[in-house]
Amino acid sequence: MSVLAVAEHRRGDLRDVSLELITAGRRLADATGGDLDVVVVGGDVDAFADRLDREGVDTVYTVDEGEEFNHEVYADAVEQLHAELEPTALVAPNSVNGLDYVPAVAERLDVPLITDVIDFEAGDGIEVTREQYGGKVETAYDVDADQYAVTIRPAEYPKAEASGDATVEAFDADVADDLGTTVNGFEEVGGGDVDITEADVLVSVGRGIEEEDNIPLIEELADTLGATLSSSRPIVDNGWLPKNRQVGQSGKVVTPDVYIAVGISGAVQHVAGMKGADTIVAINSDPSAPIYDIADYGIVDDLFEVVPELIEAFGGEAPDV
């Protein structure tokens, strides 16, 4: 069998997940001793090809079309290269952009697609592991097909580091030039008064706080500890705290000395933003919450009981909420 992995880059930088795909793709190809080919579409393809030339890669295909990601260009290029190479497995990142073109490519190629794969075993077809129901369970799926596509969750596999001796080959794709989707630019969001990535101690609030009116309780805790207040996504979605406070995949990646997660379940997107903290403390009443998989210390109890006690332990006064 052979594997075709699609690299990802943005604004001039190859994203880490591209090198993770090489590790995953090599493992998949090794199951039957086949080739691992990598394709990079758009941007400075030669420089990217250099970085993608890691141990275990047989050929890096470059498609010199466009600067930034455009799903129509990607879908056309990947579909055409796929038709030429006929790989068993098409491997792509389970990223925002990955999910913007891979489902379309899988439809066109009429191959089954399994997204957000965290582990796999290749044999006849492939058996993949996914999470479901917010990470409460894992499920295994058997894919009985000669060709298939998978998107791999970022940060599940180590980056391929060792340099390789891959052939680099330009692939001349015939991509649509009348694009119905036009990317006009990018904008950084979440600036403002505070930079949570600079904080040594973060007190972070999640869905467990239940109501906007209860936020002052956590603000008071942060103030009492001399810490900075941050949050998980739902708090920002609800407009209870500004976007610059959001920790996670679509927010900020933080690496404080101490991270106190209050009422945060620890969804994978959140964990991606805070697992680098030196010490993680969780206050969450659900003992099976995934936050306890990465926490160093925990209090399995009602935050509305614990937090006021904690504020008082430092001589503060808990607001009535």
């Binding site: 089954p112 399994i114 077809g125 058996e127 999470e131 479901q132 990470g135 409460k136 369970v137 894992e138 499920t139 295994a140 799926y141 058997d142 894919v143 009985d144 097909a145 298939y148 969780a282 099976s288 306890y292 998989d293 990465i294 926490a295 160093d296 210390y297 925990g298 209090i299 399995v300 109890d301 009602d302 009981e305 614990v306 937090v307 006690e309 904690l310 008082e312 332990a313």
Partner: peptide, 28 residues
Amino acid sequence: PVERTDMYEPESEGNATVWEGSPEDTAE
């Protein structure tokens, strides 16, 4: 071509030290 073959609770990878007791105790 896709068939679910298993569903299970993932083994907790955690080794958090959980403080026990009343809210007052755990807060302390």
